[in-house]
């Protein structure tokens, strides 16, 4: 295993070749906010929360999809990055209907936690109040697209771990939304095994157990990395 040395925020660190900046930072106790990243799933750099600055490169890079390189000089927490992240977060909130006060995930929500972590207090943009659908047709689970941030964690977990590939993204731009099957009600999609992996993967209150009332939704975030590791390393105990 070859090793790369780089600096993150002025700190000299070493990382395995092929690791992402996010992985290297994490291994060294450096926090970079994320939303679409979930341990055990592939990374796609969709949410733009993990943007970092790399010396010599004139644009911001997503730490989750950028591999470390020898001599790389990375900054994760400059004023510019902080401002961008906050604005990014404000845009995410303004785009959907995130009424935390009446959300099943309230106080158990990665979006909320990350908003706090990046110092978002309010949004400078006007809310769009989209009218997206709620699908309760599945006997055990429900999806409220109003709370979806299009991180595609559900898409990836269902495809990569469960192998059922129930979810996809339909449409483009502001019309983009998560659909099940061939844009059928979730309850009618035969491929779904009702495994609940997407419920555990969703970072917001978008996918939840049916019957959840406000602020009671609990997820087992460790389950997916466990399953991924179990498959890869044949270790089936947690």
């Amino acid at each position: 295993m070859s090793v790369k040395t780089l600096t993150i925020n002025g700190e000299l660190i070493s990382a395995r070749a092929g690791d992402t900046i996010l992985q290297a930072a994490k291994d060294n106790g450096i926090y970079i906010p994320t939303l679409c990243h979930l341990e055990g799933l592939s990374d796609i750099g969709a949410c733009r929360m993990c943007m970092v600055e790399v010396e010599g490169i004139n644009k911001l890079l997503s730490a989750c999809v950028t591999e470390v390189a020898e001599g790389m000089v990375v900054a994760t927490n400059t004023e510019k990055l902080k401002e961008y992240r906050r604005m990014n977060m404000e845009l995410i909130f303004a785009e959907g209907n995130h009424t935390c006060a009446v959300c099943v995930a309230n106080s158990n929500c990665e979006l909320q936690d990350t908003a706090v972590a990046v110092g978002m207090e309010h949004t400078r943009f006007s809310y769009r109040f989209p009218d997206r659908g709620v699908d309760l047709s599945h006997p055990q689970f429900g999806i409220d697209r109003n709370r979806c941030i299009l991180c595609t964690r559900c898409v990836r977990v269902c495809d990569e771990i469960e192998g059922a590939h129930v979810w996809d993204i339909a449409n483009r731009g502001e019309e983009a939304e998560i659909v099940s099957g061939l844009n059928q009600p979730w309850g009618e999609v035969d491929a779904c095994t009702a495994c609940g992996k997407c419920v555990n993967a969703c970072p917001t209150g978008a996918i939840s157990y049916k019957g959840s009332s406000v602020a009671v939704m609990q997820r087992d975030r460790g389950r997916i990395p466990f399953l991924a590791a179990a498959r890869e390393k044949q270790q089936w105990t947690r």
């Binding site: 099943v104 709620v134 429900g142 049916k210 009332s213 406000v214």
Partner: peptide
Amino acid sequence: EGRPMWELAGITAR
């Protein structure tokens, strides 16, 4: 209207 019925306790509590 349109909300999952289980959420109404929390919504109407407001």
